[in-house]
């Protein structure tokens, strides 16, 4: 079983990203689970989302305590929380950032998901919706699912123009991850 952690701000769509990835994994014949960790927070608060993917049914429902990969939806989050407490050791981190964040002793990947979202007009209430681009980047970096599965999974969550824009975001993001 593989376990991942997403750190996002309420409104960025971290929970949706974990669901899209779960759907994509299930489309590939795997088992998956997407768990949000909500508190009484509102927009802007840091939200944790967990993703599990497995080739067998997943029994556990508790939080992910030892993720094998972490996605951070805003580089500002790295200033607010100590990532080494959530993902000790050499766990790779994928960050939504325009330039490479400085994190020592671990693999750091980054992608400018905000620019992708803004370019495609994926904005709600002033928040760039980076979730689909980040889901795609996560799938690529951590090897969670293939590009076409992510695209197919989008169809379970979006329709019409929103589906088109998000499909585009996913395709652009797939080839935009930097290291």
């Amino acid at each position: 079983m593989r376990e991942f952690l997403i750190l996002s701000r309420g409104g960025q769509g971290g929970v949706m990203a974990s669901r899209i990835l779960a759907s994509a994994a299930v489309l590939e014949g795997l088992w998956a689970q997407a768990i949000p960790e909500f508190g009484p927070e509102r927009r802007g608060a840091i939200v944790k989302s967990y993703l599990r993917v497995s080739d067998a049914p997943i029994a556990r429902h508790s939080s992910v305590r030892r993720p094998e990969g972490v996605a951070v939806f805003s580089s500002k989050i790295l200033e607010l929380i100590d990532i080494s407490k959530l993902a000790p050791g050499s766990v790779p981190v994928l960050v939504n950032a325009a330039k490479k964040p400085e994190l020592v002793d671990r693999d750091v990947y980054y992608i400018d998901a905000t620019s992708i979202a803004l370019k495609l007009g994926l904005v709600i209430a002033g928040w760039p919706l980076v979730n689909t681009a980040m889901a795609s980047a996560m799938a690529r970096v951590f090897g969670i699912a293939g590009l076409e599965s992510i695209v197919r999974a989008l169809g379970e969550y979006f329709r019409g123009k929103l589906l088109e824009a998000n499909t585009e975001a996913v395709r652009i993001a797939w080839d935009s991850v930097m290291r």
């Binding site: 929970v15 974990s18 669901r19 779960a22 759907s23 299930v26 088992w31 998956a32 689970q33 997407a34 768990i35 949000p36 960790e37 909500f38 997943i58 429902h61």
Partner: peptide, 9 residues
């Protein structure tokens, strides 16, 4: 949350 907001197949 553990079930109500958790997505599973």
């Amino acid at each position: 949350f553990t079930l109500s907001h958790t997505a599973e197949p």
